[in-house]
Simulated scan of single mutants.
Amino acid sequence: MESCDASTGSRLSLPASVAEVAEGLESCDYLADEGLATAVFLAITLGRPLLLEGEPGVGKTETANALATWTGAELIRLQCYEGIDVAQAVYEWDYSRQLLHLRTAEATGGATRDTAEALEDELYSERFLIRRPLLRAIAATEGPPPVLLIDEVDRADDEFEAFLLEILSDYAVTVPEIGRFAAVVPPRVIITSNRTRDVHDALKRRCLYHWVEHPGFEREVAIIGRRAPGVGEPLARQVAAAVATFRELGLYKPPGVAESIDWSLALGRLGASELTPEITRASLGSVLKYREDQQRVVDQGIGGLIERAVAAAG
């Protein structure tokens, strides 16, 4: 497979190795560890959905973004939430356009008893079909297979999860008024979960599985360097060390790598070249997004925490 170039849009061959996947994702500024690169490689070559679980902010969603960019494929995202149903996930009819079509037919004399059946057929044609993410991914016919991101599946209810399992079994959808849509080439499916509830075993059996850990220190420094290039390495190392220290405090929402990047960008914008207790206190909202977590850090003593982080950063 070629390196990251979303503009080519060419159909790419399967990767030959885990190393090729890691290099391809890295070309899109996503630094995957060996475990994640292996999971992505197997998902692509075996044609299986990949279920990624882990704490918020560890890069689960970004995996799909990088994969789509690397392969030149369209990223189709389905954001799950409580109460999501077929209309939001698969398809629905454009009722406003259907009504406008009826009124136009009436105004022009096209709506008669003899033409009523033909008019009804027109109303339920693909012209008025709104393709939601699952149908778009299944019905795609041009370019590389799309990357279908089913984000935060743990937020959806059990009924939708069962429906999703059915869709992923044969990559086909039936629209009663039109017929069956089946994938010529199945999409590459990435499913993410923050594990606010357990995903059912049936869905897990359908997927390959990988738990995404917080990156190690050196890899987090490298990620910050890629995503916040204006921040010097000494500050990047201090940020990674400070975030690692915060994660050990039993916070309600431990900061992920996404927060490390946000904090680095904020510090760069503030003109900081190193972490100090003063600049940390002023920018704490960039890395800790809950008041209780900020208060815990303050109570632990920002000065001591930052001194430990600077020492650990070398």
Rank of each mutant, 00 (worst) to 15 (best):
D198H: 13
A16V: 13
T141I: 12
A313V: 05
L50H: 11
P255H: 10
L99P: 00
R11K: 12
A266V: 13
V18E: 14
G54Y: 08
A172R: 15
E248M: 10
L149G: 00
Y124A: 07
R281Q: 13
T104Y: 12
L203I: 02
A242S: 12
L251G: 05
A242P: 00
I302F: 06
K60W: 02
A282K: 14
V18C: 09
G250H: 03
G230E: 14
T104C: 04
A222R: 15
E259N: 11
E2V: 09
T61K: 03
A312G: 03
V310Y: 03
P176T: 03
L42R: 14
R11N: 09
R291V: 13
A140L: 04
R127E: 15
E55N: 11
A282E: 15
A107F: 06
A236H: 01
L52C: 07
S3A: 11
A139I: 05
S264A: 15
I223V: 15
D157K: 07
Q300M: 12
S286T: 02
A266I: 08
V221G: 02
G109V: 03
C207R: 07
R308Q: 14
P254A: 03
E292F: 01
S125P: 00
R296V: 15
I302E: 08
A244C: 03
D29S: 15
A105T: 04
V231R: 03
L51V: 06
G225V: 01
V90H: 01
I306E: 01
V199W: 04
I261P: 02
E82I: 03
L249K: 02
T8I: 06
D157E: 08
V21T: 04
A139Y: 07
P187D: 12
D157F: 05
A107E: 15
V40K: 08
R226N: 10
P133G: 10
E23C: 09
Y171D: 11
Y30F: 15
L148D: 03
E55A: 14
E278M: 05
L249R: 05
I138N: 02
L165W: 11
L275S: 05
E213V: 00
F163T: 13
P229S: 09
D154W: 06
W70E: 07
A39Q: 08
A66M: 05
L249P: 00
L123I: 01
Q88P: 00
G110K: 00
L134V: 05
R197F: 05
S3R: 07
D5Y: 04
G179A: 09
Y30Q: 03
I223Q: 10
R227V: 00
L265I: 14
E307P: 00
R219F: 12
G285I: 13
V185I: 12
K60I: 02
A266N: 04
E159N: 11
A282F: 05
T192H: 04
T174H: 13
E142K: 14
R226W: 08
S193P: 01
A87C: 05
I167A: 08
E292W: 02
D170W: 04
